[in-house]
Amino acid sequence: MAETTMAAVIKIRVEHLSFHYGAHRILDEVSALFPEGLLSAITGPSGQGKSTFLTCLNRLWEEFPDARAQGDIWVRLDGRDRLVSAPDFAVTELRRRVAMVFQTPNPLPMSILKNLAFPLRLVGINKREMVRETAQRALIDAFLWDEVKDRLHHDARTLSGGQQQRLCIARALTLRPDVLLLDEPTSSLDQAARRVIEALLMRLKDRCTIVVVSHYLDQIQRLADTVYELSSGKLLRR
């Protein structure tokens, strides 16, 4: 772990993180470092809490009943380390800066444009031109613009699975987050769609720190700069 610390700025620092669902322990005093501007992968057998670990980074776990987390997670934002669980750190701000893409594409049941406008609206950006411009840029970044530019007002759920997932990535990018969390982003997609998303992730590395959960070892080999394996509640650097 030491060489990583030396080599790059640490974007996310996880210290002694434990996680419980009711009486069931998922994570046991887990620690990890995620360097800035790199793609880190978390792998391991299914059902071990990889997704849960990801939800700790943006505090999404707080939405689940009976869930409990202990330990510290620091995210480096605007040049200083911030404790994600600090009372003065609004969870909404955290989630805007540490964006997340889910395993199953989850476009909101709205038009394509409205999906992209949604995060902007949350922060009070409503100006039509600005929204359109940002949406277009995000769609271009997510390799989706050419496919949807003529049907921005169509229901986002009419897109194919791969397109929906790229839309979700585009939506996560609209607010230019510092960190992008992806939970098995390609597991519900076919080979072709998977390749597109992988190419997209490689491109996005310059722009933000990426933490991706994946159980495809070949995919991890192609993409990841650092790899952690989660097994039996422990997270080990590989």
Binding site: N58, L60, E63, T92, E93, L94, R95, R96, A99, M100, F102, T104, N106, P107, L108, P109, F118, P119, R121, L122, V123, R171, A172, L175
Partner: peptide, 25 residues
């Protein structure tokens, strides 16, 4: 549940989620 989480994971607070996602749907 996924619909609830979608907006929340983007940084919506409960009222925003309710007003812009849950109620319209």
């Amino acid at each position: 549940a996924e619909m609830r989480l979608a907006a929340v994971s983007l940084g919506a607070d409960r009222i925003q989620n309710l007003w812009w996602v849950l109620l319209p749907n």
